[in-house]
Amino acid sequence: MMELADILTRERIRIPLQAEGLKDGVRILLDMVDPTGELGGDPNDHLDRLRSGDGGYVLYPTPRSWIGIFRGGTGTAAALGVSSEPLSSPLDDEDGAIRILFLLRIGHRTRLRDQGVQALSEVMGSPQVEGALLTARSAEEVRSLQALMRIPLVSRLRVRDALTPLTYRIYPDTPLHEVVDLMARKGLSALPVVGEGLQVLGVVTAGEALRQSLQGIVREAHSVGMTARDVMSRSVLCVTEDQALEDAAQVMVNRDTAQLPVVREGEMVGFLTREAVLRALFTEEPTG
């Protein structure tokens, strides 16, 4: 779980925020959370984008506080500024009393927690925290506000979020011809070989099954008594369902493997495939 303190660094806190109005203040904070311009477009237009719901949204915890949330890019960052004077705004619903600006950018690879956003709005809207922000003289004073800094705001994707549940498993003594038949009928790219306690002992891949078939070994399996034990790969790298998805994806890239077995307390519960990783990391999901 990522707390606000992890993404709101001292360098991204402006005390005081010297801006010529609300739009200029948003532009200044945006330069801090998106220094390379991943969000695209004219920085001066991003306030209008937020207001229209284009890639983000706006919250107003109090008449003097403003929260803008962007989604996009590959990183997650926050910036906060407190102006010594109210920031002018041309909109009727922004009456010129706003002094506290908070900007949050959520990357596509992370999940913004609805509960975290609600907590952020409630904490920034509390008289104690708002008063402390308005009177803060340094970034250190802002970061000392534990009620604000300890908010769990962002959840990293875990392996469980892209897990393909285990549907079929075989045992070491499963006859090889049955293994091949199951893979052919169900279109399986791999089958885990498990022990009595469902612990992973090895994996039989479709590639290995095909190689054995082409060599004609499968046709002789009845006579020689070949089983899954004879052809399974015993060197199996597994990941746990609690591991960060990005870390597991990097393992897949480094090992050039199409899938990884996923275990829970030593018991295999499914596979992590390249396709599932791509969907989870690079397809934008609803917040939750």
Rank of each mutant, 00 (worst) to 15 (best):
Asp6Phe: 10
Ile7Thr: 05
Arg10Ala: 12
Lys23Trp: 08
Gly25Tyr: 01
Arg27Asp: 00
Leu29Asn: 08
Val33Trp: 08
Val33Asn: 03
Val33Leu: 05
Asp34Pro: 08
Thr36Lys: 15
Gly37Trp: 11
Glu38Phe: 11
Leu39Val: 09
Gly40Ala: 03
Asp45Gly: 08
Leu47Trp: 02
Asp48Ser: 15
Tyr57His: 14
Pro61Glu: 02
Pro63Ala: 10
Arg64Phe: 02
Trp66Ile: 00
Trp66Gln: 00
Ile67Tyr: 09
Arg71Ile: 09
Gly73Cys: 08
Thr74Met: 06
Thr74Val: 06
Leu80Gly: 08
Ser83Pro: 02
Leu87Asn: 01
Ser88Ile: 05
Asp92Val: 01
Asp95Asn: 14
Gly96Ala: 11
Ala97Gly: 06
Ile98Gln: 03
Ile100Val: 15
Leu103Arg: 11
Leu104Ile: 09
Arg109Asp: 02
Gly116Met: 01
Ala119Phe: 05
Val123Cys: 13
Gly125Ser: 12
Ala132Met: 05
Ala132Asn: 07
Ala132Glu: 10
Leu134Asp: 01
Ala136Leu: 09
Ala136Gly: 13
Ala136Ile: 08
Ser138Ile: 11
Ala139Arg: 09
Glu140Phe: 04
Glu141His: 07
Val142Trp: 00
Leu148Tyr: 14
Pro152Asp: 02
Val154Ser: 14
Ser155Gln: 15
Ser155Tyr: 10
Arg158Asn: 15
Arg160Asn: 08
Asp161Phe: 07
Leu163Val: 05
Pro172Glu: 12
Asp173Leu: 12
Leu176Tyr: 04
Val179Gly: 06
Val179Ile: 10
Arg185Leu: 13
Leu188Cys: 07
Leu191Pro: 04
Pro192Lys: 09
Glu196Thr: 12
Gln199Leu: 01
Gly202Arg: 06
Thr205Val: 12
Gly207Trp: 00
Ala209His: 11
Leu210Arg: 14
Leu210Val: 13
Arg211Ala: 11
Gln212Pro: 04
Gln212Asn: 14
Leu214Tyr: 03
Gly216Met: 13
Gly216Leu: 10
Arg219Phe: 02
Ala221Phe: 01
His222Leu: 10
Ser223Phe: 11
Thr227Ile: 10
Arg229Pro: 08
Val236Lys: 02
Cys238Ile: 02
Val239Thr: 00
Ala244Gln: 13
Leu245Pro: 00
Glu246Arg: 14
Ala249Ile: 00
Met252Pro: 06
Val253Gln: 14
Val253Ser: 13
Asn254Thr: 08
Ala258Leu: 06
Pro261Asn: 04
Val263Leu: 04
Glu265Lys: 14
Glu265Trp: 11
Gly270Asn: 05
Gly270Ser: 01
Phe271His: 10
Thr273Gly: 06
Thr273Arg: 15
Thr273Cys: 15
Ala276Trp: 09
Phe282Trp: 04
Thr283Val: 12
Glu284Phe: 03
Glu285Arg: 14
Thr287Arg: 15
